[in-house]
């Protein structure tokens, strides 16, 4: 019957698992490392605009995040890549001249109190990078709002990167530049759109290159590693809300495109709000979540005391995610159908 004797089926080597036996090629580490990979161009832009300072600040915040995950996290959890994302994202929303020890502390706080305290990956209610950033904002309000100008010599340090804790050290000669949002809020000046989109403005490391962030986010969205509904919803809400305000009083309120491309909105909408763990699981929930963030961002920027509101808007909406999830459960198949199996009218 056969050209070779049929092998005796090797039962001792057979697996015995429950169905289904097939598995899609996606895995949690693969998603996480893809996010890290998509952040590389943004980090590149940060280095291009802010020189060596960008490298050391990103390294410090990432080291803080990875260190705490390694010390207190479950064994082998560094490999899933989620701590690396937290560290890099935190670094990207810090100014270039930020003291390294503070960046390190921020990363450590974000992972320690933002994630591990709740039980590690998947359990945290708030985005750990933003928890770290909120902590830094509260602890070091001056350092975190000192933005160097992009018009310095590339190789120059952009601030007191190497000050030590409790050391009052004089900052080196740094040309500081206000962020577009600060300019608008406190001086009533609107930066031109082209600079905003390319990233040639003052601001935190990764917040300035709006177009690049959109491109990197599209890659993730295409691979379904990011729910496109969240950034789309945020942009839409911010645009519509600020357009209405702009139409009401164009002198008092900024134009909508300025709102979209200034500050941390791009980075926040594409990378922070879409964090899978802290965003809703249902599609409708994602739209609600995004709309909430969009409205809060405009409210804080226009009427709040701070020039920037993306961080607090996202953290605030994070808190509502469990409620949004519960309220937006889809109708289970076959429930509430009329006699004869007709779908119920919504």
């Amino acid at each position: 019957m056969n050209d070779r004797p049929a092998s005796t089926p090797p039962e001792d080597r057979l697996l015995l698992t429950a169905a289904p036996h097939l598995k899609s090629p996606d895995s949690t580490p693969k998603i996480m490392w893809n996010v890290v990979g998509s952040l590389v161009p943004i980090m590149g832009a940060a280095v291009y605009f802010f020189g060596p300072s960008a490298i050391v600040v990103l390294a410090a915040s990432t080291a803080g995040a990875l260190g705490v995950e390694w010390l207190f996290g479950p064994k082998g959890s560094l490999k899933d890549g989620s701590a690396a994302i937290t560290g890099i994202l935190l670094g990207l929303c810090l100014p270039a001249g930020f003291p390294l020890w503070m960046a390190f502390l921020g990363g450590a706080f974000g992972i320690g109190f933002g994630k591990l305290m709740f039980g590690g990956l998947g359990q945290n209610p708030f985005n750990p990078a933003l928890v770290g950033r909120a902590f830094l904002q509260a602890a070091f309000p001056t350092a975190i709002t000192t933005w160097p100008s992009t018009e310095m010599e590339w190789a120059a340090w952009r601030g007191a990167n190497f000050t030590l804790p409790l050391q009052g050290g004089e900052a080196p000669d740094v040309v500081t530049a206000p962020t577009p949002l600060g300019l608008w809020k406190f001086e009533g000046e609107v930066t031109d759109l082209w600079s905003l989109m390319v990233g040639n403005t003052g601001g935190s490391l990764g917040e300035t290159a709006g177009v690049l962030i959109l491109l990197c986010g599209s890659y993730l969205a295409l691979r379904n590693y990011l729910n496109w509904r969240i950034p789309a919803g945020i942009f839409l809400t911010v645009f519509v809300f600020s357009e209405i305000l702009y139409l009401v009083d164009g002198a008092r309120f900024p134009p909508p495109f300025f709102m979209l491309f200034s500050g941390g909105l791009m980075l926040g909408a594409v990378y922070m709000a879409t964090d899978m763990v802290t965003s809703p699981v249902t599609h409708l929930g994602c739209w609600i979540f995004a709309a909430g963030i969009g409205i809060l961002v405009v409210l804080i920027r226009v009427w709040g005391g701070l020039p920037e509101g993306v961080m607090y808007a996202i953290l605030f909406m994070n808190a509502f995610v469990p409620f949004i999830n519960r309220a937006t459960q889809p109708r289970v198949f076959g429930h509430g159908v009329a006699k004869g199996g007709k779908e119920p009218k919504p």
Binding site: L15, H21, L22, S27, T28, Q123, M276, V277, S279, V281
Partner: peptide, 15 residues
């Protein structure tokens, strides 16, 4: 196709 895979925590991706 079929092997024992490491289980990670749920990341609430909604997939």
């Amino acid at each position: 196709e079929a092997r024992i895979r490491q289980v990670y925590p749920c990341i609430k991706c909604g997939h």
